[in-house]
Structure formats: C-alpha cells, structure tokens
C-alpha cells in the first residue's frame, strides 16, 4: 500500500449559521484514504455524511481544517481549479444517478472525458459502456433506461476518466435489491480492476462491509 494517502482530511469542521446560533455539522474529522483502498463512511440520516463527502470532494469549503487531494490543499484552490482537479482525479456516483437527461448514454460517459479534452472520448466511452454491459443501449437517453441501467451508465462515466479516487454517495440507495446487488458487484469489481480508491457514503451496513475500512459518523464526529 502506498504510504502517501491520496486523500486526507485534517481536523475538518463545518458549522453553518442557524436561527439560534451556529450549528455544527462536522467536528474535528480527520481521515486518510490510500490509493486502491476502499473506505466506507456510515451513518444515519442527518449525521453529516453528504456534508463530509462534499468537503472531501472539494464541493464545499470547511469552516476549520483542510483536505488534501493528491497532495493539493483544497483550501488553496479556487472553484475552477477545484473543478479541474476533480475532472483530473475524481469520479462520482450518486444515489439518484444524475445523468444529463439531454445526452445519450454514450454522450453521458463521454462528458467528463470531453471536459478533460480527451480526443479519444468516444472510443473510450464506447469501450466503458461495453464493460458495464450497455453497449447496445449507447444511443438511449436516460429516460429510456431503467434505474439499474442508469446507475451502470453512471459507473461507466465515473470510471471512464480513470480516476484515482471514486466518491460514491449511496450508490444503491435508489435501486431495488437485485439491481442494487448488480451495481455494487460492478462497483467493487471495477474498483478492484482499476486500482481506484473508493470513498463510499452509505447507511447500508452490507455494502459498507465490503470496503477495506469503515468509519461511522455520529453527530458530526467520525468514529473508526
């Protein structure tokens, strides 16, 4: 295992103003994720899982502490630099899939590649759609695909950029049991084959159980 973590958070805190004073969402959270490692953050609704994921992915700014991604302190980057960093190193899978409805399955997979300026975006995306078993449906639009298929397109989109780190937010949360199982198999298989680090946020113990490491988030504090 690489001794230098691909992602590290140090004394991360997040407070937001509330009607009765500041509200603490996260308090003194520190963690490391190494290349190829899979880590799960578990917690009930409202425990701050999504807030933590947002901070780790550079989608939000911490009130205290900092996040380092590929040795870059996210606090020192502006929004466009953060976007470029995400585009270069990160992949995302969401609970509600979040495919672009106006683009076909193939174009959705091409999207992050094109944003990176990859001249072989179409070929790479076609190949990845084949890997998730959706080659035949590459010209379909999201509303013509089932939930499970949409999430497989989202997986292809996330892995197509060969990310060093994949953020997955409740990736099976919107799927039935069979589809959820299929998607989680695929997620861990690709994670293993590509050597991608995985940060998984979920309340699903079974899914989290398949990760190398697990943390539990309770009332804004992280417990091993």
């Amino acid at each position: 295992m690489n001794p230098s973590p691909i992602l590290s958070a140090l004394h991360l805190g997040k407070t937001v103003p509330g009607p009765e004073g500041d509200l603490t969402l996260l308090d003194d959270v520190s963690l490391d994720v190494h290349a190829g490692e899979s880590a799960a953050i578990l917690g009930p609704s409202g425990s701050g899982k999504s807030t933590l994921l947002g901070l780790l992915a550079g989608l939000d700014r911490p009130t205290t502490g900092h996040v380092r991604l590929q040795d870059q302190n996210l606090n020192e980057l502006d929004e466009d630099e953060l976007a470029a960093l995400r585009g270069r190193w990160c992949g995302f899978v969401f609970q509600s899939f979040h495919l672009v409805h106006d683009l076909t399955a193939l174009e959705n997979v091409m999207l992050p590649l094109e944003l990176k300026g990859d001249p072989a975006a179409r070929e790479t995306a076609t190949q990845w759609l084949g890997r998730v078993g959706l080659h035949q449906r590459r010209s379909h639009f999201p509303n013509q695909l089932s939930g499970g298929e949409q999430q497989r397109v989202a997986l292809a989109r996330a892995f197509a950029v060969e990310p060093a780190l994949l953020f997955a937010d409740e990736p099976t949360g919107s799927l039935d049991h069979a589809n959820g199982r299929h998607v989680s198999e695929l997620l861990f298989e690709l994670n293993r084959d590509e050597g991608t680090a995985l940060v998984l946020v979920s309340h699903d113990e079974e899914l989290a159980g398949r990760c190398d490491r697990r943390w539990r988030l309770e009332e804004g504090r992280l417990h091993a």
Partner: peptide
C-alpha cells in the same frame, strides 16, 4: 442541477 453536475465532473465555470 445540470450545471452543478457539470461542475462536479470538472467543467469550469466559464464553460
């Protein structure tokens, strides 16, 4: 949400 997704996937604000 579409715009936010583009940003998450690495699109610059100008794009």
């Amino acid at each position: 949400l579409d715009n936010a997704l583009l940003r998450i996937l690495g699109a610059r604000h100008a794009l």
